[in-house]
Design a protein around this nucleic acid. Sequence first.
DNA 1: TCGTTATGAATGAACG
DNA 2: CGTTCATTCATAACGA
Lengths: 180, 180
Amino acid sequence: MSGFCIAKARTHLRNSSNNKNNSNDYGSGTKCGRWNPTAEQVKVLTELFRSGLRTPSTDQIQKISSQLSFYGKIESKNVFYWFQNHKARERQKRRRVNLDFSEMSHNRQLQYYNEEPPAAKAERVIETLQLFPLNSFNDAADHHQYYYGRKEAAAAARGFSCGFSSEMDHPPLDLRLSFL
Amino acid sequence: MSGFCIAKARTHLRNSSNNKNNSNDYGSGTKCGRWNPTAEQVKVLTELFRSGLRTPSTDQIQKISSQLSFYGKIESKNVFYWFQNHKARERQKRRRVNLDFSEMSHNRQLQYYNEEPPAAKAERVIETLQLFPLNSFNDAADHHQYYYGRKEAAAAARGFSCGFSSEMDHPPLDLRLSFL
DNA sequence: TCGTTATGAATGAACG
DNA sequence: CGTTCATTCATAACGA
């Protein structure tokens, strides 16, 4: 169940309006649909994840979302889900791969798919990430008292969209993420 | 910025990951790309599906994958995706049918098709499937009428006992699935 | 060589 | 969190 979005009758081939290269609207002229992250957004999120962030607090989610909105429409819940999924899938994938391995007995599997090196805690990255106004980065050891929890996600969704509505000044991002 | 003019950009970086040389042969040009199941693999998977297996557990996936590897390269995730897709598409198809029905004749469509055809089940298939070291078959269906009661499923599960559960190299498969 | 179809893969959203 | 569902992207396979 769930999905309310009526399935647009196929062939939704796209964008009539000659908007810039498509990218993703998700909110523009197109129907309501799910969030379609831009490459930049994914990049940042991935970077954050790689740096060790796994379960961002609501504050962090809000901030991240806010920053990412520079690259395109995005809501807090999207960030929330993104991390949930990314984390879950990383585990699932690893689990599956391991099973394969144990099963295959020998066979040299040097490259584990496109796995990421385990944690590793990139200090360096953290440093850059700190440029983000993310105040607390204590995640691993943190007590996840927040944990959205879908209703909260929804709440976050309506609660605050952009902490800084004015679109004219979302300047910092460029700088902060330039390292990416 | 936002270059990506390429058609739809979905960030699908197809991921390098230098796929493990997909030495997926089985009579084709060996393209390194996605998994291309062999006829035998598809057959077995289809049988399993028809017998009622819809959402194999991680263990089952692992086992199935392991067994099927005899017929050609295959990974757990392939099995996972296969079932996901197969189930989803069946449902989608059914949904489409139901829609048509509702437009012409309301009625009838209710129960029959929500899942697989009810009866007719595969005593035969079960039998063959027992050859598989799939221990628990208890998932047969989501929440709905099942094809063959859970009892039977369970029975089927524990029934077999082909001693090859510890082989590691793909051995007996030939025999057990020869019926296919 | 192209257009179409079938299906592997990925992922946002959400459930239990 | 692990799982499941829906939808979409991408590409192998196929037909003309």
